[in-house]
């Protein structure tokens, strides 16, 4: 069977269609908030929360509850917690993320060891597996992604102002503290959306890569976000199809493709255009 026939055959499978819908949802929401996180130098928040998601999935599996619902609850809570302790306690933001991530990985690993039986399930949440995506995951991912997109559109100008100059924004009357919490919650929700298709370990890459690729050639904040969204949707789509055709874990395929595109754009702009 030629690769073209294989490709057409892929679209006959309901799980591939489900994976594409979830993939597009995560691509849109992660790249929409990615610009704000990367430019506020909060990229590692997504990384830290992905580790928290690992522990939350382990808790969900151990308690025999929906891992996504448990994760949505825990990750949202922790995202606000990280913000609070980095603002109020004498702990730098990166240190707060580092200690939360390390604690979460230790907790997740311990729970996996105690639970024993759910190790295989946990692996699929770590690196993403399109085979495991259920109808409820599709609904949850699409709803969360639409919510993230609408909120970013509604607060777009305030987010841009705060990302560029938080002090000026505060003086202008923008509630920067509330906006920071909102951004942390959106990040948490995006991590949750991405767990099934990308996996907890690699989801932060989807927040960072499309934005830093777009930043290589974009001019204007709005243009950066639009380019990042389009790039991310295309890469996730190709990564999912590629993972199906080549039998690779979907998360790894998507992240590797993101890295290749970034390297290509980066080299083009640093070596050829300059």
């Amino acid at each position: 069977m030629s690769w073209w026939e294989e490709l057409l055959r892929a679209f006959n499978y309901a799980f591939v269609i489900r994976a594409i819908i979830v993939g597009v949802a995560i691509a849109v929401s992660s790249s929409m908030i990615g610009a704000f996180l990367v430019l506020k130098k909060y990229s590692m928040v997504g990384h830290g929360l992905s580790h928290v998601a690992f522990a939350a999935v382990a808790i969900g599996l151990l308690l025999n509850q929906s891992p996504l619902i448990v994760t949505a609850f825990v990750v949202t809570l922790v995202s606000v917690f990280i913000l609070q302790i980095s603002e109020r306690a004498k702990i730098h933001g990166d240190a707060a993320i580092g200690l939360t991530a390390a604690f979460s990985m230790a907790l997740g690993t311990t729970l996996a060891s105690v639970g024993g039986g759910f190790n295989v399930d946990l692996f699929s949440y770590l690196f993403g597996s399109i085979l495991t995506i259920q109808r409820i995951d599709v609904v949850l991912s699409v709803v969360l992604s639409i919510a993230v997109t609408i909120i970013v559109i509604l607060f777009y100008n305030e987010f841009v102002s705060m990302t560029y100059d938080e002090t000026f924004s505060r003086v202008s009357g923008i509630k920067t503290r509330r906006l920071n919490i909102l951004l942390a919650v959106l990040t948490g929700l995006t991590v949750v959306v991405g767990i099934r298709a990308i996996g907890t370990i690699l989801i932060s890459a989807l927040i960072i890569f499309p934005t830093i690729t777009a930043l290589q050639f974009s001019r204007g904040f709005k243009a950066t976000i639009l380019i990042a969204v389009v790039l991310s949707v295309l890469i996730v789509f190709m990564g999912l199809i590629g993972s199906f055709l080549l039998g690779l874990p979907s998360g790894s395929a998507i992240v590797l493709l993101n890295a290749i595109v970034f390297m290509f754009v980066f080299l083009y702009h640093t070596l050829i255009r300059r």
């Binding site: 100008n157 841009v160 202008s172 009357g173 204007g220 709005k222 243009a223």
Partner: peptide
């Protein structure tokens, strides 16, 4: 990535 126009327009948000 914000352009000069975008930065100045944030002054109107208040």
């Amino acid at each position: 990535p914000a352009t000069v126009e975008e930065v100045v327009s944030t002054g109107l948000l208040g």
